[in-house]
Amino acid sequence: MTGVTVRFFANLREAAGSKSVQVEAEDVGSMVEILIEKHPELGDEMLDEKGELKDTVKIMVDGRNIDFLEGLHTKIDKTKKVAVFPLIAGG
C-alpha cells in the first residue's frame, strides 16, 4: 500500500526538508505522530509543550480544515489530499 501524500507550506517546508512526504497512516493523529518521528524538526513547529498539536498549525484533508471534520480522528487514505500549514495570513 502506498501512503497518503502530505504537503507542507510556508515555513513548515523548511522544517520538513521537502514540499511533501508520503506517510502510511489511518487518521490525522497517527499521521502527525509518524511525521514527527521521521522528521523531528517538525516537532518544534507542530507541537506545544504538552505534545499537543499547536493551534497555529492547520491541517486540511481534501480542502477541509480538520477542525470542521473529525479533528485528529479524521480518516485519511491514499485517495485524500493532506496539507499542513503554519499560521499564515495576507489579504
Binding site: 504537503r7 507550506f9 510556508a10 515555513n11 492547520k58 486540511m60 480542502g63 480544515n65 489530499k81 496539507a83 500549514f85 503554519p86 499560521l87 499564515i88 495570513a89 495576507g90 489579504g91
Partner: peptide, 19 residues
C-alpha cells in the same frame, strides 16, 4: 513571520488548497 517572509501572496497555496 509569514507576512514578512512570503508576503501576502503566501495565501495562494492555502486558498487553492481550500478550494
Amino acid at each position: 513571520g509569514a507576512l514578512s517572509s512570503f508576503g501576502t501572496n503566501v495565501l495562494i497555496n492555502i486558498l487553492d488548497e481550500s478550494g
